[in-house]
Write a protein that binds this DNA or RNA. Sequence first.
DNA 1: GCTTGACCTTCCAGTGACTGGAACCCCCAT
DNA 2: ATGGGGGTTCCAGTCACTGGAAGGTCAAGC
Lengths: 131, 131
Amino acid sequence: MNISDAAARTGIPPKTIRYYEDIGLIAPDRADNGYRDFSETAVGKLDFLGRARALGFSINECRDLLALWEDKARASADVRRIAASHLAAIEAKINDLTAMRGTLAHLIETCAGDHRPDCPILADLAGGDCC
Amino acid sequence: MNISDAAARTGIPPKTIRYYEDIGLIAPDRADNGYRDFSETAVGKLDFLGRARALGFSINECRDLLALWEDKARASADVRRIAASHLAAIEAKINDLTAMRGTLAHLIETCAGDHRPDCPILADLAGGDCC
DNA sequence: GCTTGACCTTCCAGTGACTGGAACCCCCAT
DNA sequence: ATGGGGGTTCCAGTCACTGGAAGGTCAAGC
């Protein structure tokens, strides 16, 4: 299977697939003409990567998860540890963003948003000690 | 004021301050010896930038906000528009992350996390059609 | 006056995870 | 044989810094 078919099957753009090979995440076969040749196994790996990336795992976490997936003697504790630490990072990010959202929503509410220059948003950014 | 004092006052690292000058966000004075010389006004701008960045505004949004801040004839609607679109982006990101958190938390819950290889997390990443 | 160490300067390179583009090769249908 | 739509590599750019090297400057202590 050529790269564009693998891309269509997995939803991962060809450019990204090449990048994944570049950084050693995958190593698809090569046809005689130099084209990458994706086996079902290779497509499966790409699918795995796509789903792991969609869950927000970093490339390096994906690398580790992929290795564990391949390792039939893995301990599920290792997988769980990676996932748990990623979950913690996600929760931290959600907390940050939620705080930002709170502040921003409040500021936007109190801003008239008309032609006049008075703006509590700028006032807050300028002073910080507002409200 | 030298750069490290400005950094201490604003909480923005010297490296970042230099970077902000590089990309034209700020333009501090220069002393005769070539050192940057930060006025109170310049420190005020840095403070503004620090708070805007802490609210997650991009550098370009900061640039626009800074320009509006300087423009005494601005319309608050312009500020509000920037903030509102940023808020929408934050909310979208929160939604994404919340979905990830849900999936991850569920997977982690169902994973034994022991020495055995069986792992619903990997199963989900591999198949996606689990549960 | 000299040294030392802390500060400042510039410039270059690397991060993460792609993405765009140029230049070129290959295959198939007409 | 030619045209178009694949494929290939490599280089550069994104965003917002961050680290490090090489060198200039300043204030304090001997």
